[in-house]
Simulated assay, not measured.
Amino acid sequence: MSSPIRLGTRRSALAQAQSGHVAAALEKVVGRPVVLVPITSEGDTNRASLSEIGGQGIFATRLREALLAGECDFLVHSLKDLPTAVPEGLVIAATPVREDARDVAITRGGTPLHELRAGSTVGTGSPRRIAQVRRRAPHSTVVDLRGNVDSRLARVASGELDAVILAAAGLSRLGTDSPLHREELGLSEWPTAPGQGALAVETTTDAPAELREALAVLDDAPTRLAITLERAILEGLDAGCQAPMAAHAVVEGDEIRVRTVVYAADGGRRIGLDVTEPLNEGYIQRNGSGNDADAADGADPIQAVRSLGLAVARRLLEQGAAELVPREQS
């Protein structure tokens, strides 16, 4: 019973930092050591633009293969990097409390993004962030960007770039301390990717009951509800996890609210919805199609918010979102 539990993780500093947080939390639950098993994903070696490769699970596929092959006992992913379809034999066993879901703009002098001078260079590889930059700072030049957090910050510090867009959660988990200036981008006007700031703890469906039960202790119900809604919208749009769309949900008392936007790649057009619903089955009669098997009864709040997300996606498609987002590729 004292043998270590093996946690599979990508090799990046950020991935290992966030996996380390989960490992420490699990050790407190089970009283056993948890060791990290570094795994190299395609996303760590393929330097092509995320707009070309990011929708195909490049950060998760190799890790999932390792889990199914018995090389580790469970995985920790950045949830925003996971395709919406969970492979057969795997299950997301926990979604710990979500970190700050916002993006931040990093600059040398503290100039707000919308006030950057014409021709300023802003680095990001995310199609969603590219579209948002083109709306917020239309006179700037977007530079496609890959690499770890430190290398991105260094390109601003050196003057090679005027700004970069990063996830607040990543900076927090790394404990990054930089003299550069950061501008928090509010979620109402700058919503972020489905699942941003959240982690997914994944294991096999036939994992020992002891492990499944221990991982379940790490699950945060409001986070699980919010990310289920966000990812259902992405699923309903049939778009990749690097699509130029955003969805951020939050549980507020006995209601759940979601702000979702689909962007044209050039930022010139967007389609958005802001929806608030009670956390009960009532919305199913109002918004459900009646054809979704998961909406058959509203007793399960997870299935209820998933049904809501699919309904929101249908509304976006009816308003023309299909013209703006690329279809998911298997």
Rank of each mutant, 00 (worst) to 15 (best):
L113M: 06
P83E: 05
R47W: 14
T40R: 08
Q56F: 14
I58E: 02
S51I: 06
E99N: 13
S51W: 15
R108P: 10
L75R: 01
V142M: 00
V97T: 15
R146W: 11
T107W: 01
V122Y: 01
N148D: 15
G54A: 03
E115D: 13
T121G: 08
P127A: 02
D144M: 10
V133L: 11
L116D: 00
L113H: 11
I130G: 02
L79W: 14
Q56H: 10
S126I: 00
R146Q: 07
V104E: 02
R146H: 02
R47F: 08
I58N: 06
R117L: 12
E65I: 04
G54I: 07
L153T: 01
D73R: 04
C72D: 06
G119K: 02
P87S: 11
L82F: 14
A105C: 11
A93W: 14
T141N: 10
I92L: 10
I106Y: 02
G55W: 00
A137R: 03
G110Y: 06
L82R: 07
P138F: 12
G55P: 09
H77V: 10
G119N: 08
N148F: 10
I92P: 02
E99M: 15
L75F: 09
Q132M: 04
L153R: 00
T121C: 10
G54R: 00
E99K: 07
T111S: 07
D144G: 09
I53T: 06
R102F: 05
S151M: 15
V86M: 04
Q56I: 07
H77K: 13
V133P: 07
P138H: 01
I92Y: 12
A60E: 14
S78T: 12
